[in-house]
């Protein structure tokens, strides 16, 4: 069971109050993109054992989307941060580094 804190309304709630919304920080490719770009966007997902970044929605609460950094192996939540960001903020990266030195996820480290 994950315990997440919604950065929009401040509620710290358990997983069933939220809904997972897929991988975070995707670059979308639509009409006009090459087949390779679209294929990568559509199908090439991260499936790490360890540090992972996801989008979540507080669907039984304030209804807002946000980002979460968590560990798929230990189920530890490193932190949550607003949806309006293109990359994980430094304090989230620092929190992960404290637990998992040398971590990488896509282009982030």
């Amino acid at each position: 069971m994950l315990i997440l804190t919604c950065p929009c309304c401040g509620v710290t709630g358990e997983e069933t109050e939220f809904h997972q919304g897929g991988e975070a920080h995707l670059t979308r490719h639509g009409p006009g993109a090459s087949d390779d770009e679209f294929h990568t966007y559509m199908f090439a997902k991260e499936n790490p054992k360890g540090v992972h970044f996801e989008r979540w929605r507080h669907n039984n609460g304030c209804g807002k989307w946000f980002h979460a950094a968590r560990d798929t192996m230990t189920l530890e939540v490193y932190g949550t941060y607003p949806a309006q960001t293109l990359e994980p903020p430094q304090e989230i990266r620092d929190a992960i580094t404290a637990k998992r030195p040398g971590w990488t996820w896509r282009e982030f480290a």
């Binding site: 309304c9 509620v11 709630g13 069933t16 109050e17 669907n59 039984n60 609460g61 304030c62």
Partner: peptide, 10 residues
């Protein structure tokens, strides 16, 4: 004030 889940409904 708290919005949450009550069994299967918001």
């Amino acid at each position: 004030f708290r919005r949450t889940r009550m069994a299967q409904v918001p």
